[in-house]
Design a protein around this nucleic acid. Structure first.
Length: 227
DNA sequence: GCCCAGGTGGGTA
DNA sequence: TACCCACATGGG
């Protein structure tokens, strides 16, 4: 993908408008880097409120640490994370993550010494970690600049750049990373703002795109959405 | 009752 | 590479 000054200006303006309108989002909600890692797995294809219940269960059971996850049986873990859905699959994923973290001495912050691309590749090799979860962990738990793409981000980009026809996670990520300064704090805020905007405006049945904070930057009225 | 939610892994063509 | 499907609970 070639860098385009026009797209760089567009993405910068979108960020400025969203930040001015919604304010700082304070992601990732939760208590510390390891809890963020756990949350990234538990929120997969699941509403955050459900993931949060599972996190509370893990904390109440004293299981919110890599060592505790390794020590627990998979079936006990599954019961604890039941509210987040896919509980058997997620219990296995949590154990795989806990096994992986052992190489960093169970210290998520220790991953910060790595190159972001190298860390991302490592994370992708862990069972249950796909591109979005790897970027969630790299960005929100470790603080390295890896732009997070989710379905909301893809929908908003598709409406802003309908001619672009991006395919696949990496294409969307490349769009942001090629056109923005490589700044973890800004990546953090930008993704959270896109999420907030998608939830408040774009996913409504009748989005009022004319008064939307992104009016004029977004191709409206193409589907049941705009903004 | 129906659709959706801060995806991923495994199988098939 | 590109689809398909299983995985599963809770809220609107």
């Amino acid at each position: 993908m070639r860098r385009s000054p026009r797209i760089a200006r567009l993405l910068a303006e979108v960020y400025e408008r969203l930040l001015a309108h919604y304010g700082p989002q304070g992601w990732w909600p939760g208590d510390g880097p390891f809890e963020t890692v756990v949350g990234a797995i538990l929120t997969q294809n699941t509403a955050w409120t459900n993931a949060a219940r599972a996190i509370q269960n893990l904390k109440a059971a004293g299981a919110m640490s890599p060592a505790a996850l390794r020590a627990a049986s998979e079936s006990d873990l599954a019961e604890l994370v039941r509210p987040s859905g896919y509980f058997n699959a997620k219990a296995r994923k949590l154990k795989a993550m806990a096994d992986y973290l052992e190489r960093y001495g169970d210290d998520v912050a220790a991953m910060g010494g790595k190159d972001v691309r190298a860390l991302r590749s490592e994370l992708l090799a862990v069972h249950g970690v796909g591109p979005e979860t790897a970027d969630d962990i790299a960005l929100y738990a470790v603080g390295l600049p890896s732009f997070v793409i989710d379905v909301y981000t893809q929908r908003i980009v598709d409406r802003m750049l309908p001619r672009r026809r991006l395919r696949g996670y990496d294409a969307y990520q490349e769009l942001f990373e090629r056109h923005l300064p490589r700044d973890a704090a800004m990546f953090n805020e930008y993704h959270a703002l896109l999420d907030a905007h998608a939830k408040e405006v774009c996913l409504k049945r009748e989005p009022r795109c004319g008064s939307c904070v992104l009016a004029g930057l977004c191709a409206t009225g193409r589907r049941a959405g705009g903004g």
